[in-house]
Design a protein around this nucleic acid. Structure first.
Lengths: 232, 232
DNA sequence: GCAAAAGTGTTAAAGCTACACCCATGT
DNA sequence: ACATGGGTGTAGCTTTAACACTTTTGC
């Protein structure tokens, strides 16, 4: 049965913008392509949507392929549909935004795909419209991390407040006041004191917290407004 | 040249969630289908993406078709890609979110498409996953109207503050304090006093304002946070 | 002059910013 | 003991929420 004759069918792909944080800088997981087309160039990890596969399932398959992880924070960024975005053949790509704990992924798999963690500040030019996707993803990250507690997805289970602050400073590329940041974060009630301390620090050991997952769910949509005064 | 053999090509469509405001209630422009498939049922306005057409151009074509308008506020909501969302054939749909001034559209064209303005509160069930699209669009509207000055897109060029307040009250389905609302809106500096007054009012005539378009552009991303205390 | 809708003012509480001080740890 | 980094407190300002009064208009 074909109720829609005379309509064009086109390729649909998924590309993933994968962010990680190493404690100092925001990083992207990028692929140095060792396959055609555009061999040798940098790109996002992506792939075609399969015949019997839901969109989000496709993204998760691709992410799992590359990182070995299956419980990744993923959001759809949007569809990229310019006619000529892939010079070989028209392909609509749905971009997905992923946040992962950089120490958690499967190093083997990443190596096999010829993928590398690249600091955002040294990002090379990417193929097709992947640069646009990264720009939009960064905008999205900045926008949403100020309003929702998604930053935690980039950190390990247990983390200290100074670590969290460094993350925010990396996301927004700005300095934050230690005392105000700490007060603001703690006042959300989202953090639970694990009782242990960060033993790897050379000076005073910071308290390690973990996320109150139940509250995290409940409060996700209660706006914060985390960054100090962005003007009126 | 076909560099991607063995991949499935699928249909790509665009569906538009079109909001309007009649001064009292939020409305949706919906179609009572007088064509197959699903004839007689309610749906969003949509259509297939053409061979040489960019995604956003497709959405604008469809919107123009239905309303006769070409300067509509449009944003991409996202792609809907469940395998079985269209029972006839797999179709990926990219949903677009549109805000229009309800008094502005081409009534002829709307009638020709068998389209109707339906109050959100009386929304009938829609075909396929269109109900999900509407839910997401409403969420998006609520989310964004609190942070960005997009509400103005639903009003005529010149409007009064009480009209704007009614719009916000309709969007959030809650009552707002007249005095605080007015102060908050005016403090953004986005409104220009046109000098005229709303002559159709039966009592005291309210001042008509228009939007400062230049400031609107500049301030779009400066977060407001319009709704009063959503809790911590 | 009265009802209905619009404009403006005030005050107390809450939140934010910018600061300074003290504590724990390794050398 | 000192340098480094982490935790906590406070004062002044701004913003917010809650509330009351006055003005304009049609009848």
């Amino acid at each position: 049965m074909n109720r829609y004759p005379n309509q064009t069918r086109i390729l649909v792909a998924t590309d993933c913008i994968i962010f990680g944080f190493d404690g100092e800088e925001l990083k992207l997981l990028l692929i140095k392509r060792h396959f055609e087309p555009e061999i040798g160039k940098w790109s996002l990890m992506g792939g075609f949507l399969k015949e019997e596969e839901d969109l989000e399932a496709g993204a998760k398959r691709i992410l799992n392929d590359l990182t070995g992880l299956s419980n990744i924070y993923v959001e759809q960024l949007g569809a990229f549909g310019k006619v000529d975005r892939d010079p070989a053949e028209r392909t609509l790509s749905v971009a997905f935004f992923a946040l992962i704990n950089i120490h958690d992924h499967d190093q083997e798999a990443v190596r096999a795909h010829n993928a590398h963690w690249i600091s955002l500040k040294n990002k090379p030019a990417l193929i097709f419209d992947h640069d646009d996707m990264v720009s939009l993803a960064l905008e999205h990250l900045r926008y949403n991390a100020a309003l929702h507690p998604i930053g935690f997805e980039l950190l390990p289970e247990a983390f200290t407040i100074p670590q969290l602050q460094k993350l925010y400073e990396a996301i927004y590329d700005m300095q934050l006041d230690r005392r105000n940041f700490s007060r603001k974060i703690l006042s959300t009630g989202l953090l639970i004191d694990t009782g242990s301390k960060n033993m790897s620090a050379p000076t005073k050991k910071a308290i390690m917290y973990c996320l109150d997952k139940e509250k995290y769910q409940r409060k996700f949509y209660a706006f914060w407004n985390f960054m100090p005064g962005q003007g009126k």
